[in-house]
């Protein structure tokens, strides 16, 4: 169909594709520009709270934001070392 349209002069330009690519890129980048600070703040505060009770490797606390069309998912992934006392584990969960 596209080929037919091109043949008969109704050439589909590439500008709409450029527009769409830009909109997707910028939606992603603008979201990120406001994002790193917020996620970093969240990460360090979560790390601070959990570290009061459990010894954590700071690098094993991962905070991610997955932006969806309608809702976004804040994902907090904390790896806890195995040496932690059982009572603390119960309290932490």
């Amino acid at each position: 169909m596209m080929n037919l349209m091109r043949l008969f002069g109704g050439r589909a330009g590439s500008a709409p594709v450029a527009r769409e690519r830009l909109q997707i890129l910028l939606a992603h980048e603008r979201g990120r520009n406001g994002g790193p600070d917020l996620l970093e703040v969240l990460r360090s505060e979560i790390l601070g709270v959990v570290s009061k009770h459990i010894d954590l490797d700071p690098d094993k606390v991962v905070v991610k934001m997955d932006r969806g069309k309608f809702v976004s998912m804040l994902e907090v992934d904390i790896e806890v070392p195995n040496g932690v006392q059982r009572s603390m584990m119960v309290a932490a969960t």
Binding site: R11, A12, G13, S14, A15, P16, A18, R19, L22, Q23, L26
Partner: peptide, 16 residues
């Protein structure tokens, strides 16, 4: 070229 849809138009750029 912008009129033929081969290039982002001024309006496209301003909107973005």
């Amino acid at each position: 070229r912008a009129a033929r849809g081969e290039m982002l138009s001024i309006d496209d750029i301003l909107e973005i």
